[in-house]
Design a binder for these strands. Structure first.
Lengths: 339, 339
DNA sequence: CTGTTAGCGCCTTCAT
DNA sequence: ATGAAGGCGCTAACAG
């Protein structure tokens, strides 16, 4: 169904002038006779002329497009980050191409290749939980295309990244549990491929240690974030001879799953089991009891990632200094930890 | 920070051969000597060669890219549609560029122009609630670029569209309310710029009429879907001298807002007021009481839109016949209508 | 103020 | 099996 689209040559021919003049009129170049310009603009409007961005990009070696790769966008988190980034990028005149890797390493690689082929000017990424090899992102670096990681970052690449303070968030969460009287605090952690999982785990450990509570490896379970399996691990914890009196989950969906298991087993929350999540999912505010959680400035995460990228886009390659932005996290107390 | 990217000319020069041969080797053309081909492929891998899609698209007048414009993507609905569409389009070798208009007519127009400039091969759209003028989409049609509307469609354009059966969904919802004993059934409707709002309103009216219940205009309120205002309308309805005993809301977020108002006012749901929504938002399943609602096959909506578009992409322009796909809706009964 | 020319990176005839 | 040449649509010198 491909058809010929009107070009500046068509307009030039129709008006009996050269395509240079048409180009100048259309781009607002001053050196064009007023009347000629008007004739050209009228004709362009009449035939629905739209500049061919492909040709311009090919010529200028700039697409004005930034790629964003996220592992998923069903949960409210990534869409909100994207919106923040997009607003900010639009302000600087950039378009956005969104790819979702669906938590698949292979898809992520193919996304990266496609963005490279379409010549994006920069890249914003949160990688999949399967990603251990970052070669597909290193190509961008080698070609001088700025890359900014957010949320899940790559520590052995010399690139900018924007995160929230996962360590402190986890620390606050566990501290809160301790201060409300819990002593056997379990942690249902994420995979150790993810920086944020590791940081949250460290925050959990340090909070316990800080308050003189021994870290019991039996109470720490790492899992792959496949929600179907969360209930297995929760049940396992609750079946221990000496079960936990509190659970800090890697994220809200996991905590909500735990809440549902507890309800099914007739375990009272927060009396018998206190629950705390991470991310402040919209559901956490409406469920009964409300889920205590750690909130993070989601939209700002996207904005900051975009700002860091734009700054880098304006920097000469030899002056590049990677930036590390860390945004604060907050404890939101609800009914799953206190009455 | 723009740098030179490796081209086939660089490879050709390095190997002392012509760029034609390099091009042939890279595209898998048979007429290339086996050894030469291998040398070329090795060199390409070594220098991270990535084909320049811009140049190819310019040459072939095909980008292999489809644009999707949605009014928002915070709610679970549009992301899920996009995922469905993307999977299906990927299967046919198309990439996707996602734009969100943020329910703003102006942004939508500018999105459409940008997609036109970047020469997408096709367009999938759900328009904003402000959109009354569809000229920016008609340009695509005139240029022979297929457009498929979904969810919110444009009735006076001769294009394909994919929707769910809003009319029947609304009918089922109201019928359910009637069959559970309600007689004063209010409808908090959406703006009449949206086809789905209008269809749901018609389903509501017809169900009442069908069961011999007079349609009371006092019980029908159209609003702009700005959730902050929903509670005003709900309160207004509940303050009527003869208040409703049931409310059918245009969508789940609106119904959930109504539920929260009812709770605040001490009105018992479902005893004093039955509530029913539309769309089966994830929150509706977890809230207390659960929200009765109309579910729709969201991912399939995206898949179908993509399939219709791909078919059209393969059709000659003079053989084009617009398709109208309507997917079924289902009543999901929860605690907000029955004990 | 306007036209001519070159070239961005690639594929595709047309020769050889 | 390979090379040379043309052109996709556009902008940017360079002439006039």
């Amino acid at each position: 169904m491909a058809t010929h689209q009107t070009t500046i040559i068509d307009i030039a021919r129709a008006l009996g002038i050269s395509k240079s003049t048409v180009s100048r009129a259309l781009t607002g170049h001053p050196n064009v006779n007023g009347k000629t310009r008007q004739r050209i603009l009228d004709m362009a409007a009449q035939v629905d002329y739209q500049r061919n961005q492909l040709a311009i990009s090919l010529l200028t070696n700039r697409t004005g497009t930034v790629g964003i790769i996220v592992p998923e966008f069903i949960s409210y988190f990534f869409p909100k980050v994207i919106i923040g980034a997009q607003e900010e990028l639009a302000r600087s005149g950039y378009n956005v191409v969104i790819c979702h890797s669906n938590e698949s390493y292979e898809t992520e690689v193919s996304n990266a290749k496609a963005l490279l082929a379409s010549r994006v000017d920069g890249l914003i990424v949160s990688h999949t939980k399967e990603t251990r090899n970052f070669d597909h992102f290193k190509i961008f670096q080698r070609k001088g295309i700025p890359v900014v990681f957010f949320n899940r970052v790559c520590e052995d690449m010399n690139v900018s990244n924007v995160t929230v303070d996962d360590y402190n968030g986890a620390f606050l969460a566990v501290e809160h549990l301790i201060q409300t009287g819990r002593r056997r605090i379990a942690h249902l952690a994420g995979p150790d491929t993810l920086t944020n999982s590791r940081n949250r785990l460290n925050g959990y450990r340090d909070a316990l240690t800080r308050y003189g509570i021994p870290v019991d490896p039996e109470l720490i379970i790492s899992y792959d974030l496949n929600l179907d399996k969360a209930n297995i691990y929760v049940n396992h914890l609750l079946n221990l001879p000496n079960p936990p009196d509190a659970l800090f989950a890697i994220n809200d969906p996991t905590a909500l799953e735990a809440l549902s298991v507890a309800k099914r087993r007739g375990i009272r929350v927060p009396d018998d089991l206190a629950l705390i999540g991470f991310s402040d999912d919209p559901i956490s505010a409406v469920i009964e009891p409300g889920l205590t959680t750690i909130s993070q400035p989601v939209t700002e995460l996207g904005q900051q990632a975009a700002q860091v990228l734009v700054r880098q886009l304006l920097t000469k390659e030899d002056e590049f200094q990677p930036e590390r932005v860390v945004l604060p996290t907050n404890l939101i107390i609800r009914g799953s930890t206190v009455k």
